[in-house]
Design a protein around this nucleic acid. Sequence first.
DNA 1: AGGAATCGTCTGTGAAGCACCAACTATTTA
DNA 2: TAAATAGTTGGTGCTTCACAGACGATTCCT
Lengths: 159, 159
Amino acid sequence: MSAQPLDSSEHRSGALLDHLARRMRLRSESVLAPLGLRPRHLVALTVLRAGGGTGQQALATILEMDSTNIVGLLNDLEAEQLIERRRSPEDRRRHVVELTEDGAKRLSEAECALASAENEVLGALTPTERETLYELLSRASTGTTVNCTEAICVADDTC
Amino acid sequence: MSAQPLDSSEHRSGALLDHLARRMRLRSESVLAPLGLRPRHLVALTVLRAGGGTGQQALATILEMDSTNIVGLLNDLEAEQLIERRRSPEDRRRHVVELTEDGAKRLSEAECALASAENEVLGALTPTERETLYELLSRASTGTTVNCTEAICVADDTC
DNA sequence: AGGAATCGTCTGTGAAGCACCAACTATTTA
DNA sequence: TAAATAGTTGGTGCTTCACAGACGATTCCT
């Protein structure tokens, strides 16, 4: 018990994650502005695309934001018809948030527009490596989400 | 210009980077507080460890922060003797910033303390995958391909 | 039916991060 | 000598964000 596997890592990715996210975000802002989006909108849209059909509370948990601030964020997105809030038929208190077709399209456009930003920030990586990075980040991001949706979607065939 | 590969190029890591960095940062704050550090200090220390001996202006460029705010950041770190500002002998206007021994040690401690935070956020990844992630982030962050793992941690079994 | 808990919404408050501007010193360079 | 550069200091203002309080609608418990 006293001896841990030692996993060869005092290699903590936190600071690097922070650093790169900042660099990316700074570039994204100017690129995203013409599309009427801001980086945090993109995060929300990305999360919704990955694990759509969640309530706002669940979304707040996933994004680790205060639920009152989620409201404003979703208001922005709904005002441009990028998302839809529908009342859940099972629990009419709940607003089920989902990406609209417009939302998916806009997200796609944004991702195209971000190519140059990503080229700058991830310039040291080959396309293959970037794909690996994407895959790892994607799994890490949704991996913790699974636990949240798991409990909610037991009786829900939309998963 | 006419035909791009475009097959997997919809995969932009920006939003995921942002998302995970946020989740990591939130957890880091409470863990780092007892050590008298904040996430952005850790970013600075990490950058300095990777490419030490830079002037403050260069540091501002790397971190993409305003140089006036770099001053305060470095003041914090210098107050705890985690970094040193020495005048460059070649150009005495310049302050060469370097990690002290205490700084390296504190950084190491912080990284140890962040293990649990990383376990939560990166829980969906295996240790091998996390190492791959670290390596990719590290390379992207330094911008140039550094010969990886200069055996800093070999002599350091504190983890 | 009645009461408590939950979801979303709205409002406001306060702290923190950060960019930006202006002025100043010390030093280098043309 | 004049201009440019590195760092420092102080101030301003914007944006993000957590948090708290109150409210209507709905569900769950008994």
